[in-house]
Design a protein around this nucleic acid. Structure first.
Length: 311
DNA sequence: AAGACGAAAGTGGTTGA
DNA sequence: TCAACAACTTTCGTCTT
């Protein structure tokens, strides 16, 4: 088994923004985040979760021999080659017949589906690097795509749109949200098509999709706007509180994340305009205003905000 | 002049008869 | 299958800073 040594990120890295060595490794997201300023120092790290984690109760594949089975290789990375002349020198004629047949079988041209999956997975890897997806999500997306292909769900849809849908589903399943916009850009696809395909394959494959939490977006949005950790914590508090008072259900998580960040930035004296927040969150100013109003009203933040305004 | 505010009309998806 | 519905968008005119 191949062993990759990875130094503990915490010991060696320094935040390029504030120089702090107090870094936090977020295993789920595969990111190193600076505790002080919230900067994402590094993405796409090695996934440290147990290598024997197996889905679908497949106990048999928990063996720790051989190279890791990788769903992102089109043959799961476990194919072998039957050699020719020299390899079969010691075999009886009957055996030679059999191995000859096996060889023919093996070298037969790949099926349409194999070729399809292979093309899809290379597209997947390309987009994954653009999106900084951790390996675990790539694997998940590969599994989803393969299942979809096996059930003939790709028919009538472009490979790209199905791969994109699989990626979106994999991200949501792992609570590492990428917005539909980001995925659409990475795949050069239309947002609507991806959404449709995503819903379709999720339904057909019986993938349970939990609504994403606004909290999942806060770090990334804040980071993109150069907001500090203080603002992030504040925004998360606001969202948690809003959850308790059930004003978040049915609302778009991105809008809530955006509004919470907007308010948090005001409260922490790092004001951003609605326009700036709207741009990174991929919602409109109007939506931010609507969520803003609800949040301020129901959480009783008017006094605090007025105080801030008075400077 | 820029930012914030909100009304009005339109879009795409969900739900329920 | 259709209509009602909620969330969100686009657009635009009006205040506020």
């Amino acid at each position: 088994m191949m062993v990759i040594h990875v130094e503990s990120p915490r010991k060696t890295k320094k935040c390029p923004v504030c120089g702090s060595t107090d870094l936090e490794y977020d295993q789920q997201r595969g990111e190193i985040i600076c505790r002080k300023c919230g900067e994402v120092v590094e993405h796409s790290l090695v996934d440290f979760s147990p290598e024997w984690r197996v889905f679908e109760n497949d106990r048999e594949s928990r063996k720790r021999v051989g190279s890791p089975i990788s769903a992102s290789k089109y043959d799961y990375g476990v194919s072998t080659q039957i050699g020719s002349a020299s390899d079969i020198a010691g075999l009886t004629p009957e055996m030679r017949k059999i191995t000859g047949k096996m060889k023919m079988w093996q070298e037969r041209t790949p099926t349409a589906m194999e070729r399809n999956v292979k093309a899809a997975l290379s597209e997947l890897r390309r987009a994954a690097s653009v999106l900084h997806l951790p390996q675990r999500v790539v694997e998940e997306a590969s599994r989803i795509y393969r299942k979809a292909a096996e059930r003939g769900l790709v028919r009538g849809r472009s490979i790209e749109s199905v791969v994109a849908g699989a990626v979106y589903a994999a991200c949501r399943l792992n609570s590492i949200p990428r917005t539909l916009d980001e995925i659409a850009t990475a795949f050069h696809q239309d947002k609507k098509d991806i959404g449709k395909t995503y819903r379709f394959i999720a339904r057909e494959l019986g993938i349970k999709i939990l609504p994403t939490s606004p909290v999942d977006y806060v770090y990334r949005f804040a980071n993109e706007m150069g907001l500090t950790q203080k603002v992030v914590s504040r925004a998360i508090k606001i969202i948690k509180e809003a959850n308790k008072r059930e004003i978040t259900s049915g609302k778009g998580p991105m809008g809530i994340a955006a509004a919470a960040l907007y308010i948090a930035a005001l409260l922490e004296g790092e004001k951003k305009t609605q326009r700036e927040v709207a741009d990174v969150a991929g919602v409109t100013e109007v939506t931010i205003r609507n969520r803003y109003k609800e949040l301020v009203e129901k959480l009783g933040l008017e006094k605090k905000l007025r105080k801030i305004k008075a400077e």
